[in-house]
C-alpha cells in the first residue's frame, strides 16, 4: 500500500495534528475530577481514531507521535512523555489490530480497548520507572475509567466518521 505523499495528505495530517494538540492542551486545563494518576478523558484519541480509520495507520501514527511529543513540550511535562508514548503506542497497536475486525458502526470498541491498552502501557512504564509493583493496584480503577472514557471518545469518533467529509 504505497502512497504518494501529496500536498493534500500533508495538509490533512497537519490539520489533524493541530486539532489533536489543541484538544490535548485544552483538556489539561480542566481540573482533575478523580485524583488518581492516569484517569483522564483522553479526548485527543478521537483524532487518532479518525486518522487511523480515515487516512490509515501510517498517518495515524505520525499524528499520534507528533501530538505526544509536542504536547509534552508545550505543557512542560517532558517526563510525562515516556508514559504518554508507552500508552499511546499500545493504544495505537490495539486500534490498528481491531480495525480489521470491527465494522464501521463499532469503531467505539477501538476507543474502549485502546483506552484500556493505553492505561495498561502507562502503568507498566510507571512500575518500571518507580520500581513499585504495588502501582498495579491502580489497574482495576484505571480499567473502569478506560471503559467509560473510551466509550465516550470512541463514540465521538464513530459519529464523526459516519459523516461524509
Amino acid at each position: 500500500m504505497k502512497r504518494k505523499i501529496s500536498t493534500k495528505r500533508i495538509t490533512l495530517d497537519a490539520v489533524l495534528t493541530a486539532l489533536a494538540l489543541i484538544i490535548f492542551i485544552i483538556e489539561l486545563q480542566f481540573p482533575e475530577i478523580v485524583p488518581i494518576p492516569g484517569v483522564k478523558l483522553g479526548l485527543a484519541n478521537v483524532i487518532t481514531l479518525i486518522a487511523i480509520f480515515k487516512l490509515g495507520p501510517v498517518d495515524g501514527l505520525i499524528i499520534l507521535i507528533l501530538r505526544i511529543v509536542m504536547g509534552s513540550i508545550f505543557s512542560g511535562r517532558i517526563i510525562a512523555m515516556l508514559y504518554s508514548l508507552a500508552g499511546g503506542l499500545l493504544c495505537f497497536l490495539v486500534t490498528v489490530f481491531l480495525k480489521k475486525i470491527v465494522s464501521k458502526s463499532q469503531i467505539w470498541v477501538c476507543g474502549v480497548l485502546g483506552a484500556i491498552a493505553h492505561n495498561l502501557g502507562q502503568i507498566l512504564v510507571a512500575i518500571l520507572i518507580t520500581q513499585t509493583p504495588a502501582l498495579l493496584s491502580y489497574l482495576p480503577i484505571l480499567i473502569v475509567s478506560a471503559v467509560i472514557t473510551g466509550a465516550f471518545t470512541g463514540g465521538i469518533a464513530t459519529v464523526v466518521l459516519e459523516q461524509r467529509f
Binding site: P37, R77, A80, A126, I129, T130, T132, A134
Partner: peptide
C-alpha cells in the same frame, strides 16, 4: 489502603 500515593514525575511512592 492498598493504593499508594504516587508522584510519577518525581518517581516518589508512599505506601
Amino acid at each position: 489502603s492498598a493504593a499508594p500515593i504516587c508522584c510519577l514525575p518525581h518517581k516518589l511512592v508512599i505506601k
